[in-house]
Design a protein around this nucleic acid. Sequence first.
RNA 1: GGCCCGUUCGUCUAUCGGUUAGGACAUCUGGUUUUCAACCAGGCAAGAGGGGUUCGACUCCCCUACGGGCUGCCA
Length: 467
Amino acid sequence: MTKQVVTRFAPSPTGDLHIGGARTALFNWLYARGRGGKFLLRIEDTDRERYTPAAAAAIITGLQWLGLDWDGDAVSQFEQRARHAAVAHEMLGRGTAYKCFSTQDEIAAFRADKEAAGASYAVFLSPWRDAAPASYPEAPYVIRMKAPRVGETVIADQVQGRVIIRNDTLDDMVVLRSDGTPTYMLAVVVDDHDMGVTHVIRGDDHLNNAARQQMVYDAMGWDIPVWAHIPLIHGPDGKKLSKRHGATAVGDYQLQGYPAAGMRNYLSRLGWSHGDDEFFTSAQAMEWFDFPGIGRAPARLDFKKLENICGQHIAVTENAALLRELTLFLTVSGHLPLTEIQRDRLERGLYCVKDRAKTFAELIDKAEFMLASRPIVADDSAAIMLDPVSRGILRDLTPRLQTAQWTKDALEVILADVAAKYGIGFGKLAAPLRAALAGRTVTPSVYDMMLVIGQAETISRIRDAAA
RNA sequence: GGCCCGUUCGUCUAUCGGUUAGGACAUCUGGUUUUCAACCAGGCAAGAGGGGUUCGACUCCCCUACGGGCUGCCA
């Protein structure tokens, strides 16, 4: 047996959980969960200037909503800073890193000179790389990796293949800042190693970084993890995803009523495929997910397809579960919580709307007839008796009207609703609508009439036609 | 500028040297429908361009174009 798979998602808490980040998390989650491995979460909060607790919380809630559960507690990278510094100093001792006393101004001047001289690249070459400790000044310093100047570094990537980077394009990256804090390049490697991460699945914007990070693994004699650099998601126009493309935070999708299962399905299918399978559960995705199925080109977001997939997921969701999600959606999106009666009606009537809504928002919209309060009738018990929605729903095995009497009763209430909602006179409506319905060979279903309630246009058309 | 990655219908993609280049979403047409939705039938639509390699290239190699990324004491 090979050792257990350990993946991780390591977002930097500088804003909401981005849709692209969510997909990266999803891929890691699928890979680990599909192999009985572990999926860890680490918050890359070493940049204290940009760090906000709110952003970290947003990432947590975003992942929770998507159903991407991680093992153990979320690790704070910042809290590992002492360990990072220790590793930096250990490399110093091993001679694989060195103290650099160059100031920012000196570095900038170095680059400016190179540029002025028409140099093809501006990799900073520190004068302190091979300086004798005796010559060290009493000044702040950073710790830099002593990167190889010749040869090449090979990244064996599961998605991109063998990527070869010339070492002379790699600089002596800073691993420990002058204030003693670690840089990202050091922190990721140390944390991934300490957390036992075996597979690093991340955006391909890190592909070049992998070469730099391998230096640290090598310097410490650690095993290099399996790399898998996945292409980023782009907006519908093919450009890098940004605010102007609309919703980019997963929270936005939750607010718009997209089901998490549909999001997982769509997002996993974006840049990854398993033959012609389009609609599947997360359990299937876990079983199927693997690196060969991942594409190498960035994929564009297609909201229409997202909606379609989400609609399919809503349609197959069990009522109890659907109701739970609907309830959550309602509270999150600022709607009033359902009353006992509304909840009951919704549950019984779900069957007639669940397969025609693409989002929870649309489902609620279509279910308005169930949630709207019934018209006030003199006698309360009579109102309940006359309510065709409740009656029809109670008998959902036979949703079609069975008797003329029932149809008549139903009509009266519906017409009252319509009249109240659209300000159309009750009397003017009753006759034409009744006629329209009676003209059919098939008895109109409760559902048909429910829809009539929600459609003023139809009402007026029927009215006009009959006038 | 340098380095790295990418490029099949509008979109997501299948294909892993030999196919009428398949599917899905979108779109269009027809059917069904008292409306919407749903559903049924059908249509349109693709290998960026140029060179090779090969009996044969979407598939392998090179160049160009375009897109993206990296090139920080950001992550």
